[in-house]
């Protein structure tokens, strides 16, 4: 369980994280979604005590990270694949981390096997590809068999097989009752991995809800309509609560009224003929773009009240 209260981080005049509240529950994969620069990494760095919050608090299982007596066993962290000295071999990197908690070398070999690094474990990290670096970061996160995992862009640079593996791993760890918190800037990735989403944009929580709910809300289907008299149809639909936008001459994009009802309304009106009626579903990515771009539609206050 990770809990943030009014968590804020400012760098000079720039506010990276703007008083956010959220909680990440154990036993499910929680996705942390947002465009680059939204404040995801900064938030994760504050969770594990690398960055000091300007104000507010964040705790893991009720305490701040710095007070853990065995941090590696409590929390596994992958912040970026570059948190490694490139002159050291993967095995020595992991051994050094393991030694702090007197974790046996056998466990180091185990996580090397688990992440598929066997063939390169004794090579220096400066020759590693992005994907191998990512695997090493994941190996380090898994080293202490922690109850909480915080992974920043874990699939970044991985091949399709690696992406699949991370998804299964994240779900498997959550199914064991662990808290799994992973970030991504790709909605499609999150939709396949996470059950719950916290969407961040410009340092604020835009949404905090189950994935299905966010998709349903953000999808917000519209209908493309062409009619003999677009202006009259426009007025008619607005009267019935529709939100109408002109796409091109004679074509309207209607939201809030379903296609059959638009046809009924037009039929009931005198000499108003529908030429085209096309329901449009948004793709996941479009839904996400709308969420992160259009803060007005999903203000933080609204999502906050939905919590708990």
């Amino acid at each position: 369980m990770i809990e943030a209260h009014s968590l804020t981080k400012r760098y000079g005049s720039k506010t990276a994280v703007d008083g956010i509240d959220f909680s990440v529950a154990a036993g499910r994969v929680t996705g942390f979604l947002g465009p680059n620069g939204a404040g995801k990494s900064t938030t994760m760095r504050m969770i594990v005590g690398l960055d000091r919050p300007t104000s507010g608090t964040v705790t893991i299982n009720g305490v701040s990270y710095a007070t853990f007596r065995a941090p590696l066993h409590e929390v596994g962290v992958l912040l970026d694949a570059k948190a490694v000295h490139p002159g050291r071999s993967a095995r020595n990197h992991l051994r050094a981390l393991a030694a702090t908690h007197r974790i046996r070398p056998a466990r180091v070999d185990e996580v090397i096997g688990l992440t598929g690094l066997d063939s390169v474990a004794d090579k220096r990290v400066n020759g590693f590809s992005l994907g191998m670096g990512q695997r090493l970061g994941l190996a380090a996160a898994l080293l202490g068999d922690p109850a909480t995992l915080i992974l920043d862009e874990p699939v970044n640079g991985l091949d399709p097989e690696g992406v699949m593996w991370v998804r299964q791993l994240a779900r498997g760890l959550a199914a064991e009752g662990r808290t799994v918190f992973l970030s991504s800037h790709l909605m499609s990735e999150m939709a396949q991995t996470a059950e719950h989403l916290i969407v961040l944009g410009r340092g604020r929580v835009l949404a905090d809800a189950p994935v299905s709910e966010i998709l349903a809300k953000a999808s917000d289907d519209s209908v493309l309509v062409r009619a003999s008299d677009a202006d009259r149809l426009n007025a008619l639909l607005v009267d019935h609560g529709g939100v109408v936008a002109h796409v091109e001459t004679g074509q309207l994009s209607v939201r809030g009224i379903a296609a059959p009802r638009i046809a009924e309304l037009a039929a009931a009106a005198e000499s108003l003929v529908i030429h085209e009626l096309t329901p449009v579903s948004k793709s996941l990515e479009e839904a996400y773009m709308q969420l992160t771009r259009d803060e007005v539609e999903y203000p933080a206050s609204q999502t906050r009240s939905e919590k708990r």
């Binding site: 702090t100 185990e110 097989e161």
Partner: peptide
């Protein structure tokens, strides 16, 4: 790569 995280072989000591 496998998805098993092998809890069994992990001993748990505090930071020292």
């Amino acid at each position: 790569m496998s998805t098993a995280t092998s809890l069994s072989t992990t001993n748990r000591n505090d930071l020292s």
